[in-house]
Design a protein around this nucleic acid. Structure first.
Lengths: 212, 212
DNA sequence: TATCGATAGTTAGAAGCTATAACCGCCCCA
DNA sequence: TGGGGCGGTTATAGCTTCTAACTATCGATA
């Protein structure tokens, strides 16, 4: 769906090139990983030479920053879509996994080793907390068991925003995150490859552990 | 402790330089991450110029490979040390965390986003399965609960080697790994930074979940 | 002990990257 | 129908990995 705002031709062209650059960037990331992303190579692929891309992105970091924001946006959308129809915490977990398997490098761009000098801009942190919000509302609808940590979280729950959410749900959302990420990231980084069992089964088992 | 084998002076010197190079490499990794590791910079720090290091490491990748192997070795040793005195699965988990906090980049070098073209040599996979073995023996000593996955793992347990280990222990060791990595890697990559609770508390809660 | 070969280190240079600077020409808007 | 801004170009600096060719020195062996 194109943006409804009718833009000046210069602006339209500019935006088109930017998305084309990002398309090539994703392509490159999917094959060789984020560290191998090269503005030069992208320019060559687009039939223009080197420094031309600096008209569109001030630096390689700026491009990566936008790619990260887009990845976050994509994940948030996928999760919203799931939350809207079922809202089940288990469905969300499997949604995260299918989203991650769709393009492992995209997942790792967000949740893998951080880029050395990179600091998340407010837009991505906003999307991140948006995702957290979705998790929290789903977590309130699932059964929870009390834990020692509840006392601690009761005093450190500013990040959750909404005061209506029970403390046990905060814990549930947090463990959702760590367990989903734990099983999925090990699968995506290939650390489960040596063993011949199905990573999906292990993931499913973790999801079950979340639902009790 | 120095190696007991008395080596030829040439060989001794060679080994000394190699370890000195690695020391600088670790220093550099700890500050700027693995992707910023530069042979050139290391050479300059050591007072010699550029290509001299290629006498000691055929390529940047070879150096990184050895660093990874050393990191694995270090983690394995730390875990062995713990297993020898208590053997408790919880103690092992907290051991992994303190090892990771000691040098986050070292942990991420192993368990973070993999280097694009990197394939683990047999030595590191050997250490990896050595660690797994330690986990498995510790897992047999902790209470386990049956799960659907047990049927699957019963038919895919070649990686565990030892046939004496109960299937539920395999599952326990696996979930140990995914949960410990999940909570710890999110902490180390800074994804828990926005919230003001203590990551150690969350980690401890996950460890408790492992012990039941 | 004297010699000779292996080895450590050097500089030069190719190919690649990010990024800046200076310049040209076209497009679009007034 | 101008004219300013913008896209694209080449040149260049400075960084990287890594190869090639050369020198000097160290050490094992005759």
């Amino acid at each position: 769906m194109p943006k409804p705002t009718p833009q000046a031709p210069r602006e339209r062209y500019r935006e088109q090139i930017r998305t084309e650059v990002k398309a090539h960037a994703w392509n490159q990331i999917a094959t060789a990983g984020a560290s191998a992303l090269s503005l030069n190579a992208i320019a060559k692929q687009m039939g223009m030479s080197g420094p031309a891309l600096y008209r569109y992105y001030a630096s390689r970091d700026e491009l990566i920053t936008e790619l990260i924001a887009d990845a976050y946006r994509s994940l948030a959308n996928a999760l919203h879509h799931i939350a809207d129809k079922k809202g089940d915490l288990a469905a969300l977990a499997h949604g995260v996994r299918t989203w991650g398997l769709e393009d492992p490098h995209r997942y790792l761009l967000i949740y893998g080793t951080p880029i050395p000098g990179y600091h998340a801009p407010p837009t991505t942190t906003a999307i991140s907390s948006e995702i957290m919000k979705t998790l929290l509302t789903a977590a309130t609808a699932t059964p929870t068991t009390p834990d020692e940590i509840d006392a601690h979280l009761a005093h450190h729950r500013a990040w959750a925003g909404d005061d209506q959410i029970p403390t046990t749900a905060l814990h549930k959302a947090l463990t959702f995150w760590t367990r989903v990420h734990g099983a999925l990231s090990l699968e995506l980084t290939g650390h489960l490859d040596g063993m011949d069992f199905d990573p999906g089964e292990l993931f499913a088992a973790e999801v079950r552990s979340l639902m009790s």
